[in-house]
Amino acid sequence: MTKMTLGSYPHMLGFEQLEQLLERTAKSGNEGYPPFNIEQTSDASYRITLAVAGFSEDTLSITVEDRQLVIRGRARDDSHERVFLHRGIAARQFQRSFVLAEGVEVGEAVMENGLLHVDLTLHKPETVVQTIQIRKG
Rank of each mutant, 00 (worst) to 15 (best):
M1Y: 01
M1V: 11
M1G: 15
T2R: 06
K3H: 04
T5C: 08
T5D: 11
T5A: 09
G7I: 04
G7P: 04
G7E: 13
P10K: 02
H11R: 10
M12V: 08
G14H: 06
E19G: 05
L21P: 01
L21W: 04
E23S: 11
E23M: 03
E23G: 10
R24K: 14
A26S: 11
K27D: 13
S28L: 04
G29E: 07
N30S: 14
N30V: 15
G32K: 01
G32S: 07
Y33T: 15
P34H: 03
N37R: 15
N37D: 13
S42W: 03
D43E: 09
D43T: 04
A44F: 09
Y46N: 07
R47L: 12
R47F: 09
R47E: 12
I48F: 15
A51F: 02
A53R: 08
G54C: 04
I62Q: 08
T63K: 13
T63H: 05
E65W: 09
G73F: 06
D77I: 01
D77H: 02
D78G: 07
D78K: 11
S79V: 01
H80M: 13
H80D: 10
H80N: 10
E81D: 13
E81S: 10
L85F: 04
G88E: 14
A91E: 09
R96A: 12
S97K: 14
F98T: 15
F98Q: 14
L100C: 06
A101M: 09
A101S: 10
V104E: 10
E105M: 07
E105D: 03
G107T: 01
A109Y: 08
V110Y: 13
N113C: 06
V118E: 14
L120I: 05
L120T: 02
T121G: 12
T121S: 15
L122V: 05
L122P: 00
P125R: 08
P125T: 11
T127Y: 02
T127A: 08
V128M: 12
V129E: 00
T131R: 00
T131D: 04
R135N: 07
R135S: 07
G137T: 05
G137C: 07
